[in-house]
Design a protein around this nucleic acid. Structure first.
Lengths: 164, 164
DNA sequence: CAGAACTTTCAGTAAATATTGAAAGATATT
DNA sequence: AATATCTTTCAATATTTACTGAAAGTTCTG
């Protein structure tokens, strides 16, 4: 499958966007490739399309599966695995938000808790900072959980309404 | 000024959080240091506290100023510059959101526009993807702009109401 | 169960990114 | 206007992160 110029550019852009958000370039490129492909692709095809090694392809496909962004797909009569990405953009956003919440927000809440316990109260300014940060993070977590559970459009509808 | 253990840990955690979001570790460490300091600090003091070189300190302080997270502060009788970070966590979040919108969301909208123009319509699936991505990005941009302009208490109140 | 088809791992290497420190550039001071 | 104080720049270097490819591992097939 030879991609159109537009698809290639899309893959490129998505890759660099990912990398500026702390997600490795290859991982987001594979994601873009699979999103823009209408059929599931094998590891070989991905390697070929992006000109990357087998090890790299394999590792990043696994990472995408881990993030819930890509699924294995068994193709009748084929022995090897095929992969496909979910195509609904709101669903993808929800998945990414949920994962980042789990990976980054939850640990931060934990750390703040620990710090508050350690902190000797000698610096009221710092104590206040920790408290506000805890409040902020807790609220943000709640927002993300709501988003995580909301159905496709409910959340953004509410949000837009809130701001209109 | 010798920081407490808790402050040191806070700086450390904030730094690694930043780096997992594509912001360089030193930049977020300096930010954490300044947030947790009740007085403005000079470049020298920052270098000393974080054990970093002058060049590194200077570059990252400039970046923080660029992001609107840190401000110069002239101290009477002192020739050198002092720096201080805003302390209001909602304000900080707003600033970061606004900057990332400007740096990443706006360019993406531009690219999608270009791609839609280039795309030859031969692949309806890809066309649909681009359209949905455009819709999504536009909505997200609108939400962030609202957040950007809203005043602190208003936003917080509305947000809490959404979840009650 | 031997061999083929495919997947995973990981030590070595390459590439990207961040940091240093010394020199050049400013700006103030006498 | 020479000197001192402070800031910025940037080529060299160090560190971190990502990638490769071959070998080991796994699963399927006849």
């Amino acid at each position: 499958m030879q991609s159109s110029e537009a698809k290639k550019e899309f893959i490129q852009v998505w890759g660099s966007l990912g990398s500026s958000w702390g997600i490795n370039r290859t991982m987001s490129s594979i994601h873009a490739l699979l999103m823009s492909s209408s059929k599931a692709m094998s590891t070989e095809e991905i390697m070929e399309a992006l000109q990357i090694s087998r090890g790299n392809a394999n590792m990043n496909i696994r990472a995408l599966i881990d993030w819930g962004l890509v699924k294995k797909r068994f193709v009748p009569g084929e022995r090897k695995e095929f992969f496909e990405a979910g195509k609904d953009i709101w669903e993808i956003a929800r998945q990414i938000a949920a994962e980042r919440k789990k990976r980054e927000l939850t640990p931060v809440l934990q750390v703040i808790d620990d710090l508050k316990a350690k902190e000797d109260q000698s610096d009221p300014h710092f104590t206040k900072l920790l408290n506000e940060m805890q409040e902020f993070t807790t609220t943000l977590t709640a927002v993300m959980e709501k988003f995580e559970r909301s159905d496709r459009n409910w959340f953004f509808k509410r949000l837009m309404k809130l701001f209109s």
